[in-house]
Design a protein around this nucleic acid. Structure first.
Lengths: 144, 144
DNA sequence: CTGAAAAAGAAAAATTTTTGCATTATTGTC
DNA sequence: GACAATAATGCAAAAATTTTTCTTTTTCAG
């Protein structure tokens, strides 16, 4: 139940918040822009304002429920924070996104930060490319 | 001479373009937003329009002269493309940015992309943290 | 249930980036 | 060097995106 998760982070379980959280948990698309969320909610019959969506997403980010990414092209997207850090590999042709983690990369980052005297708060690695799989990348052939 | 570099990529050596390029080459701040560039040019007596700055920076990006980054917080910044790829470690307190490359990380990325069937076009790694050096991070003490 | 406090919604505002168009500048040729 | 063709600039207006304000509505503890 989503209301419990909201209470846990000190947010009242209002309808818009519950809906946004449900959406992020259940949507096929793990990475959604504020606009995406807004439209999806409208489509499913919820009468919510875009300003509320922005507010809620920002609150969720602050509360640690979601993570905000800035992909190439300036696109801001949100994804549910499920606790385990991961990086992203994005197909610039079809938009397909896969997640991964690599212990070696994580460790190298730590040692680089140490060497430079930084305390890591956060980090993100985005790999952009084309997935050559016609199944997942329907536009691959026409754009190859 | 900047006009030569512009010609080389097929852009006419107009005053605004030369000025923007000069600025990016000479500024202490390697990473500048469009607004930063605009203000710096006005300050140095150039009468340029903000729209032109945006246009020129986008042209430079297309031509490969500059690289555009989207840092945490949604901030778009540009830096001169000097040919050698590097990643960034950013102090979220004072804004100080350092560049680095790590061969091991680069290789791991390649092998991850291979394993997933992606052709890497580009990639970027941003580490966010606090640089604990009071010299380079003047705000560190007050925000620690 | 009820009331205080918080949140939603709508519209306006603030930001950032792009576009249309008249004017100005650049460049290859004479 | 000057000239005309072509491309680029600057301004203002328009988009696009995100945030804020303010009034009304909702939540939740007692």
């Amino acid at each position: 139940m989503e209301s419990h998760e909201l209470k846990k982070v000190g947010l009242k379980a209002t309808l818009p918040r519950v809906r946004v959280l449900e959406l992020l948990e259940r949507s096929e698309q793990r990475h959604m822009s504020a606009e995406d969320v807004y439209k999806a909610l409208l489509d499913s019959g919820d009468d919510v304002g875009l300003a509320t969506v922005y507010r809620v997403l920002t609150q969720f980010e602050t509360a640690g429920l979601v993570i905000r990414h800035h992909f190439e092209g300036g696109l801001s997207v949100f994804e549910l924070n499920e606790g385990k850090h991961h990086d992203h590999i994005v197909c610039v042709i079809c938009g397909h996104i896969e997640e991964f983690t690599d212990e070696v990369i994580e460790q190298r980052q730590e040692s680089i930060a140490d060497k430079k005297g930084f305390n890591i708060k956060d980090h993100c690695l985005y790999i952009y490319g084309s997935c050559q799989d016609p199944e997942t990348c329907p536009h691959y052939q026409s754009n190859r």
